[in-house]
Design a protein around this nucleic acid. Sequence first.
DNA 1: AGAACCACCTGGCAGC
DNA 2: TGCTGCCAGGTGGTTC
Length: 276
Amino acid sequence: MPELPEVETTRRGLAPHVEQHTILDVIVRTPSLRWPIPPQIADITRGQRIIALERRAKYLIFRLDSGNILIHLGMSGSLRLTDAQTPFQKHDHIDIVLTNGNCLRLRDPRRFGALLWQEGEAESHPLLNRLGIEPLAEQFDGEILYRLSRCHAAIKTVLMDSHRVVGIGNIYANEALFHAGIHPELPAQNLTRHQTDALSDAIRHILLRAIDAGGSSLRDFLDGHGNPGYFQQQYTVYGRSGQPCLRCGHTIEHLRQQQRSSYFCPYCQKNQRQTK
DNA sequence: AGAACCACCTGGCAGC
DNA sequence: TGCTGCCAGGTGGTTC
């Protein structure tokens, strides 16, 4: 599930239970997810205090005394609070056990996630130091998005390119384009400044609303059982092909871009390839 | 340099 | 019931 709002919801749910606490052990049951788990991760981090739990793009950053544990949840990962006595289940790959009895358990059926170690500054990690702008940063606005959009690629592709803007996955790219009334195949360089204003507003609005909705399920993190507690968002276009547009009633259509599903309303988002 | 495609992996579901 | 094939929220690396 994890797009930016889910990762941020996870961060907010976990932070009060891990910050200022000390790592007792790291138990690695699966030696490699997307990349190998650093073999010495337990020895390196044991006894270190978690100074802060932060987020950059979709990476969770556990800032320790001497470096950082970076966790990416991939397509199917979740990180939940439990205790070390709770039996692990299938796909529970890694436990971060704290001296206060809490245990952070990383579950990831598809194993597209990652756990990495970076000494010193987290941002110096090669996977982090070329990331684009945070869409919830104050500087993110229509002008920046306009500049990032000066290329031939489709606007949806640009939104999902983490070297330009981070954190916008397939679902929220679809939703934001619908709300801004922009066809997903429109070449990015064709967007007007007016459209990038509308689109940056839509992105910010949708992400913030999703984070608010995710916050309501935080109790599930504390219970430590059942589902991870990601909210079930009611999407406006995503996954609704064949159904009526909630704004105008026209039938939502589906297409594939970059091997990913796009959904759009042919009436509300009719500005397809307008200058070609 | 930029864009398109592939790869990684498991689970769930539709269709037969 | 059980098999097959397809689809899924990400993203770095390869190829063109």
